[in-house]
């Protein structure tokens, strides 16, 4: 999911960077309204937690293990606006320190995983969960929030890859950036996330949310804002 340097043309990464900056400005305003004085340490904590979640391997049913992108989980735990900022901070630190995701692609990666993904996850979670606090429904909502948000973000990434040969090619018609066109990039990204990574993301999100629901339901942002017992 992390787009490296060299795959996206400036025609793609510059506009995405602009959209990302706009989204972050809105998110900062919203979080400042929600936690007026404490927003700085709160966001710092959320960002560090996001970073750690992304490196946390969890055993998944079937014997293997995997780690989540974590955007859906962070959106459920901290809310979509705080998730936007905290996941972005985590992604920027990852790109700078670990080379995981490109520097020029920071705007695109943050847009896909820190803006689009938490918003979609939050929408799906609220759609399935409604105002219910029934544990099984919450867990199902968390699974689909994790699964679908990752799959949709992967397809979006596939589109960003796939349009490169169309918008940035040399005089000889060869691709200057990502060489895979839409008919290769979209299926490649969609299939692996539909069948494998999406399920891992969904399972991990559901497992952790289930644990939080059992132990400290009040810590979940979604239930701090609204909700009634079923």
């Amino acid at each position: 999911m992390h787009i490296p340097d060299g795959y996206l043309s400036p025609q793609t990464y510059l506009p995405l960077f602009g959209v990302f900056i706009g989204a972050i400005a809105v998110a900062v305003k919203k979080v400042k309204k929600e936690v007026p004085a404490r927003n700085i340490p709160y966001l710092g904590m959320a960002a560090a937690f996001s970073f750690i979640i992304m490196m946390f391997n969890l055993p998944v049913p079937g014997g293997s293990s995997g780690h989540a992108v974590g955007s859906a989980l962070i959106a459920i735990l901290f809310g979509p606006w705080a998730a936007m900022i905290s996941v972005s901070v985590a992604l920027v630190i990852q790109a700078l320190i670990f080379g995981d995701g490109g520097i020029t692609a920071i705007g695109a990666n943050c847009f896909n995983m820190a803006v689009f993904m938490p918003l979609i996850a939050w929408f799906i979670f609220r759609l399935i969960c409604g105002k219910s606090r029934a544990p099984r429904r919450i867990v199902v909502a968390a699974f689909f929030a994790g699964y679908l948000s990752l799959v949709l973000s992967a397809i979006l990434t596939g589109v960003e890859f796939g349009i490169q040969p169309l918008i940035a090619s040399g005089a000889d018609g060869r691709a200057l950036y990502c060489p895979y066109d839409l008919k290769i990039a979209i299926p490649a990204m969609a299939v692996e996330h539909l069948l494998l990574f999406g399920i891992v993301e969904g399972v991990i999100t559901a497992l952790i949310v289930q644990y939080f629901v059992r132990q400290h339901q009040i810590m979940i942002y979604a239930f701090r804002t609204t909700g009634t017992d079923e």
Binding site: I40, G44, M45, A47, A48, S86, V89, A90, V92, I93
Partner: peptide
């Protein structure tokens, strides 16, 4: 920037 700095320390 302060959020970045705090996140870095927290990490």
């Amino acid at each position: 920037l302060m959020v970045f700095w705090l996140a870095y320390k927290y990490i």
